[in-house]
Amino acid sequence: MKKEHIIILGVETSCDDTAVSLVAEGREILSSLVSSQMDLHERFGGVVPEVASRRHLEIINALIEEAMEEADLNFSDLSAIGVTYGPGLVGALLIGVSTAKALAYTCHLPLIAVNHIEGHMYANFLAHGDLPFPLVSLIVSGGHTNLVYMEDHGKMEIMGRTRDDAAGEVFDKIARSLELGYPGGPVIDNLSKKGNPLAIPFPRAYLEEGSYDFSFSGLKSAVLNHLNRQKLKGEKVNIPDLAASFQEAVVEVLVEKTLAAARDKGVRTISLSGGVAANQALRLSLEQKAREKGYRLFFPPLSLCTDNAAMVACVGYYQYLREDFASLDLNAVPGLQLISSL
């Protein structure tokens, strides 16, 4: 890779995964490593602690080294270091932020502070190049549910977010109460294919007229109530029907609110990202409705839906272009929100 290319090292440690990536020109992934996808036992020998911060600390340096090696780069080839500084778990975030700061300082490189949720949004730019602006972006994962209007890079308006549980979290909790295992999303997605989504009329929380916010805790209670009621009646629960009906209730609200946001903002482009963007029912439903109404829909490949550092490097690239750098006293901000900048 020649020096005239802009190459960003992305570091992501906001939750359970440690991830490091090298991305050229905001598009070309030179390497992208995610700890949960690697055999850590084999690589590091012995037991790897289960919890976020300690594990991040133990493997981040090795991960950076390996990513550099895989991309066949030296630190002098880099243009900047991009790091997730929130939202997330404070101890976990600090490992990434401290590492990135140390590298930026020792290698004389600019430091770029990246918002994790923006990272998810940019998984689409990474996969598809520049998306046509303006657009409406739905970000759904285990920890986040956001509806964002984007006028241009760095210019956005937060239209809606969850008022209680994140969409992915409800999938996991329902899966756990049905004893279906973890992670709950894919299990429910698969089971639903064998079930009738209209079997049980679970409530859809649309909230007040015109609101783009989400609420999923009522649905969670409704599913648990249904389970309990069946038990009291001594009736067997049809698990595929229940899974399909529950999933339908989540998907319908996500899709309808996204389409309403796109309509109200007069955009032609919709982007979908985050871990729950891997859900096939959501993809299919949004794809179909978007096509009917003439929107262009973008979503990233599965590998870029879940947490990764390539998306962080991609945000870093666009911030690099507009010289949006952080100073070396950057701190982790666990409760970081997306901020409207319009």
Partner: peptide, 14 residues
């Protein structure tokens, strides 16, 4: 602020 579930982040601070 909205108080949302911290299941994934474990701690939310307000």
């Amino acid at each position: 602020d909205y108080v949302t579930s911290p299941t994934f982040t474990l701690i939310n601070q307000y």
